[in-house]
Design a protein around this nucleic acid. Structure first.
Length: 260
DNA sequence: ATGCCGACAGGATGTCGA
């Protein structure tokens, strides 16, 4: 089963690029972030015509996540538990049956958190802690699980073009990196890193300052697998060429193949 | 240098992203 994650930065603007990519890459499941539309504004029809079921947890203007799957979507659960007052649409989870069992997948859009030292940064850390609490509960099920999305965290200095340029940024703060590391220490595996030893492989390039042309990128979109999913990991990659297409998102798809 | 670019809402330009 091929799984993928992609922060599309508006599904309305990215609709044609997304459809073209789905035809070419043909993932069984893709989780989307920053769809930037409400549930009833998601352009379901063209994706359903390609054979994808759609589970959408949208929001006007900001955020918004979705799961598209060629297989049935079961037990669809929007929202991340732990704070009922949090009205940002940043999490949706579902179970996808495969040919050798099922896998639980989540679309994650963690907060940016900039600038540091503000409520936004505190919200980011609190959100990632809520995710850790939920992940611990999920891991206790001892099932194949893939927590995929835009974590807005650069894991290590090897995942950024120039670490010094990001020292004051919320994405590269020690507390942010520790929050991601905590998830990994719970037993989750970074699928891309598990498959690739080479450093400086990125999933995001800013629109500004010619970042793409200069390869000034960062790796912040991650697929975290439970042990039962990591045992079945067959490969992973980053569809970097999507950043060079027409009207690109600033993020590109990250994928993995699991034998499920 | 806190802008460079892009999306959004709304109807000018401020907010947000990373």
């Amino acid at each position: 089963m091929k799984l993928a994650t992609w922060n599309v930065n508006s599904i309305k603007v990215r609709q044609e690029a997304a459809l073209a990519w789905l035809k070419q890459a043909a993932p069984d499941v893709v989780v989307l972030q920053e769809i930037k539309c409400q549930d009833d504004g998601f352009p379901r029809a063209p994706f359903e015509e390609l054979g994808y079921n759609c589970a959408v947890h949208g929001q006007k203007t900001y955020n918004g996540v979705a799961i598209l799957s060629k297989r049935p979507l079961e037990d669809v659960t929007p929202r991340l538990k732990g704070n009922d007052a949090d009205d940002h649409s940043r999490y949706i989870e579902a179970v996808v049956p495969g040919t050798k069992g099922a896998i639980r997948v989540a679309s994650i859009y963690a907060p940016n958190g900039n600038p540091i030292g503000t409520e936004k940064f505190a919200y980011k850390l609190a959100w990632l802690e809520r995710l850790a609490v939920h992940a611990r509960d999920l891991l206790a099920l001892e099932e194949p699980i893939a927590l995929m999305g835009d974590y807005n965290v650069i894991p290590t200095p090897d995942d950024v073009w120039n670490p010094k340029a990001w020292l004051g940024d919320a994405l590269f703060q020690p507390e942010s990196r520790a929050a991601l590391r905590k998830l990994e220490n719970l037993g989750l595996t970074d699928a891309f890193r598990a498959c690739h030893a080479e450093t400086h492989q990125y999933s995001f390039w800013d629109y500004q300052a010619g970042a793409w042309q200069k390869d000034h990128g960062i790796r912040i979109d991650h697929i975290l697998l439970s042990p039962q999913a990591a045992d079945r990991l067959k490969g992973s990659g980053i569809d970097k060429q999507m950043r060079a297409g027409d009207k690109p998102s600033d993020h590109v798809p990250v994928w993995c193949e699991v034998d499920i």
